[in-house]
Amino acid sequence: MGARMGTLYDERLRHHIGNESPRTEAVDAVCPQMIRHWVEVMQDENPAYTDPDWAARSRHGGIVAPGAMMQVWSMAPLWPPRDVDLPIAPIDEILEGEGYTKIVATGQAQTIVALARVGDTVSFTVRLTDVSETDHKTRLGMAYFVTFEYRFTNQDDDLLGTQSFTYMRFKPEPETDEAPAA
């Protein structure tokens, strides 16, 4: 099984690594309303996000959006559908076809370079950065790990930050059926 999965990587998965989506603009400009909706849930006490007077006097020079919120600007609208060619789509299709039908996110990492300001338009790209060379035994079943990276910029093409995201696609199977691979 291990050898066959190695072939899957070499023949069908590997050449997708490095592929990047087109640059896609957020549907909304950065605004105090969306920032506050985030702050309400997180109970974020930073006045840079919600106190215009403090923010204006601060090193930010005005209201900024939390860096941890960067991905929110990239989220797809409920309607109408927004079709963006994501480089992870072919990987998902291949792995799904091979029986790795379930997905669980395992982690993410953000690097915050600059904070988006009210009125900014955020754009993003998504690049496929890694796929595991073979499947791995996990608590949930045999799994491939897929990592992609967002890159967020503003309307001046200044880098706001990056965010890598890793998920695993696994074949659900009972633990007791597990035999050591290869």
Partner: peptide, 24 residues
């Protein structure tokens, strides 16, 4: 967002969060 706010509510607004690595 909850983890980011946990850290920055503690340190206060003069600090900048520059990276957050999260394992689920």
């Amino acid at each position: 967002g909850l983890m980011a706010a946990y850290v920055t509510n503690w340190c206060g607004p003069d600090w900048d969060l520059v990276a957050i690595d999260l394992r689920l």
